[in-house]
Computed example of a mutant assay.
Amino acid sequence: MAAHTRTYAVVGLTLVAAVTAGCSGSGSHSGSISPGSGSTAVSGENKPAPTESNPPGDIPDNQVYVSFQPTDGIFTGFTLKVPEGWARTSQGGTTTFTDKLNTVKITAVSASGAPTAGSVTRTVIPRLRAQVPKFASPRASEVTRHAGRVVLLTYQGDSAKDPVTGKVVRDAFERYAFYRAGHEVDLTLSGPVKADNVDPWRIVSDSFTWR
């Protein structure tokens, strides 16, 4: 019986020594990687904001939408639905609705002709490239909404820096160009990349109606 006791004691001491060595070894790997380890430092100055694996920009399924009809600006002959309760700001011919990380932006302008995927590629993309931080992946196409044929431009860009946290979010944009009789209305919907806003953005873009 004494022999068995000694055996258990030796095994126990061996396990304690192994655990202690493992903890000590793991601590030696913490901290920054030393020079010459094969890693390459990358400057973040020209790097887009990272895409979050679980972005907090999903619009709730129970979101309520209300009708919006502009009362001032260059053109007021249209209506569309916007999310209820979002903060509203207006400047010139542009009205913007925002909530957390999502934005609905509506701009009315005069236009000599209907936009096409080609004209948007030639004129709008260069302008946005100069305005949107880390602008990337533009693609113009013609799609159909309830109001008829419309030019859709999708692209990505970095959001403005949060004034409180300083955080920058990688955003996905959908820009719809509606046209009728010399008037163009540009509807831009934006939110974090990978946010599940397909249905809300479809509700808004499909609700556009000429008056």
Rank of each mutant, 00 (worst) to 15 (best):
T144K: 08
G27F: 05
K134N: 11
F97C: 10
P70K: 00
G25P: 00
L15C: 10
G38I: 04
D206H: 01
R180W: 12
T5Y: 06
R170F: 10
V64S: 14
V132F: 00
V104H: 13
P35H: 12
V120W: 05
P83M: 01
V124A: 04
A9H: 11
K161I: 04
T76A: 06
T96D: 13
W210E: 00
L15K: 09
P35V: 15
V169D: 11
S141Y: 08
L189W: 02
S110T: 08
H146A: 12
Q131S: 09
K134M: 15
P115C: 05
A136R: 03
R139D: 11
A114E: 03
L15W: 12
S137Q: 08
N102T: 12
S112V: 08
S159E: 09
V124C: 02
Q156A: 07
V66R: 10
A3C: 00
E184L: 05
V143F: 06
L187I: 05
V82M: 13
F78I: 06
G118C: 00
S32T: 12
I203E: 07
V16G: 05
V11G: 05
R6V: 10
S26A: 15
K194W: 12
K167S: 09
R180E: 14
S137E: 11
V164C: 09
F78C: 01
T20P: 08
S190N: 13
I74H: 03
E174I: 05
P50K: 11
